[in-house]
Nucleic acid binder design. Structure first.
Lengths: 337, 337
DNA sequence: ACCATTATTGAAAACGTTTACATTTAAGAG
DNA sequence: CTCTTAAATGTAAACGTTTTCAATAATGGT
């Protein structure tokens, strides 16, 4: 039988209460000698606390549930590593639940499991809400944060706190950066039609408009952030004579670089490229890809802090990482269609 | 206050025992009407089982601890997704603990946490053991499996069951495949000096020897499986006039492709390449990379099954995925040094 | 209608902690 | 040396389930 505090108490000639206090390191409520004795015995017996019992008695768990979208994003690794490190630092453990892929049943099941475990908090990473999930999460007293997802315009999302990059800013930054380099006919490829995509699109449009460059509707190609030289982004845009393209993710950028190579379009000589994300993929290509870089690790850190310290929503700063996929254009390239 | 089975029992005019039985779906031990009534009330009250209490009472947890190495490998995603799906299917939940990077303290702490949670089992993914960890795991009755790690020659590993690709076979397959395509001067790049690297090296050497191609010691370049065009693998091997290189991982392959491009070495015209892993990275490069492909998803699935059903160690089949990084050489290229 | 089974249910004892409250012991003030 | 107060420990009641064993109700055979 596994040893319990009772066994320790007996051997140490103290009560279980004292053992509990020592093992839980309750401040100033036991003599150092008592503590030493108890700790020695605990070690000798190979005692392991039964967390289930502890959580039951204390009405508090040191668990954080992380709910993840199943789609393989090459950045969730970073977020998760950060969440793990930060929860660990606070004496918590994280535990991961996958919520499939826009699968309402799985999502709600994951939430249910988290609540059954009476977790200290829930982190929804890159996962969009549905009506039922939103309701459940609103009703429970368990705190929750959305990570890398938000939507001020969707009532489903109101009341939920989030930690994310500012997608509008991302679109705006990327576009402005290209404009600063003399580009005018700028495309946007790979965004989806959900909140994230729309937000980036808005930023793009705003930057364009502010410079009097009304973006052509055809310059925007929708997608799902994934790799796809087969998506023929460039073929579709070929007739448009674009100066540059912003890709919605590094995966899209990599696909586009490959497509360009096959079509003998040189980057950046014939076409500039700036990607959104800034993961390691930007460094493995030729040329390396200039990106609007998101700080995914920091995002994870802040998400945990926000959850544990009940802080408000916040945007994680983004920045341009200059690499080699942009050329400098003359001041005013032609603009006729 | 959150509702408990007591509340449900009261409202349904039954005992808590009955409620427990219904909610746990104990076979044939209650009338359907009773079940219906209880389930209705549970739903109405928004009842959530307190898993801590259940685990405490039942002496069994439905948790699987997954202990992970911190190093970013682009395949652990697949393994983890599989573990999640498979544990879920069996009614378990998995929970992840990071063990740093050959960090003894963190590893043992992770194991300790897993044991405190009285998990049903532990999966060590791509994590090597140290003396203390091996001892702890041997002493406990909690079952455990190593995933993607094994070493028949290291006494630390004896007695531990594993699920992994056969690294010797991987090295052997890759080498043979190149030999079959007429290559003779074959290098091996990026392996480390731990068990995995040594095993792959042995397979490589065996295949070479079987064909009377004593491999030159200089043809093997050590590394750590990671991306590094800066590692100058090719520069180091330039004088060796190799026909082909086997890279220890896709990341190494990608780095090597980049290096080759910068050095104007054409792949596969000047140098053939076969990589080990076969992840998405093999598809995004130009040329696409022929690989010895590991079935990481299956590895995760089998690991969970082995753990839960107490099955023995097993190798997960690997196979060659032909892509475009190998050329066909004449039967007998020159072999003088 | 009666008895032997069998299917349902209930009562209550675990499970291993934490913690409020009570008690004892030690320490300090005068 | 006594009194007051603080520190250290003990007692015992939770916490919300599961499960054994006992009790009751339903069922079928005769």
């Amino acid at each position: 039988m596994k040893p319990t505090i009772k066994d320790i108490a007996q051997r140490a000639n103290v009560s279980t209460a004292t053992v509990s206090r020592v093992l839980a390191k309750k401040e100033k409520s036991y003599r150092p000698e008592t503590a030493a004795k108890i700790e020695a015995i605990a070690k000798e017996l190979g005692y392991k606390k039964n967390i289930a019992a502890a959580e039951l008695a204390a009405h508090s768990s040191k668990l954080i549930a992380v709910i993840l979208n199943n789609t393989q994003t090459n950045f969730s690794n970073d977020i998760i590593a950060a969440i793990q490190a930060e929860t660990d630092k606070a004496g918590y453990q994280m535990f991961i639940l996958y919520a499939g892929n826009h699968d309402s049943r799985l999502l709600n099941q994951a939430i249910s499991v988290a609540l059954e475990r009476h977790v200290a908090g829930i982190l929804l990473v890159a996962t969009s809400l549905d009506e039922q999930a939103a309701m459940t999460l609103r009703e429970t007293s368990t705190p929750c944060r959305l990570v890398s997802v938000y939507d001020e315009n969707d009532p489903k999302y109101t009341g939920f706190k989030f930690i994310s990059s500012d997608n509008e800013k991302i679109g705006y930054l990327a576009t402005n950066y290209l404009i600063d380099h003399g580009h005018q006919r700028i495309g946007l490829a790979g965004i989806d039609r959900s909140s994230t995509g729309e937000q980036r699109l808005r930023g793009y449009q705003q930057a364009m408009c502010e410079h009097g460059l009304a973006p052509h509707r055809d310059w925007v190609v929708y997608g799902d952030y994934s790799f796809g030289p087969q998506q023929n982004i460039l073929k579709g845009l070929a007739s448009k004579k674009l100066d540059a393209i912003i890709t919605a993710s590094d995966m899209v950028a990599v696909g586009l670089i490959k497509e360009a190579r096959l079509l003998n379009i040189r980057i950046p000589e014939d076409l500039s490229l700036v990607s959104i994300d800034g993961t390691f993929l930007c460094d493995i290509t030729i040329p390396t890809i200039t990106s609007v870089t998101q700080d995914f690790y920091q995002m994870g850190v802040l998400a945990v802090r926000s959850l544990l310290k009940n802080q408000d929503s916040q945007f994680v700063p983004v920045h341009i990482t200059a690499r080699n996929s942009i050329r400098l254009l003359a001041e005013k390239p032609s603009l006729q269609n």
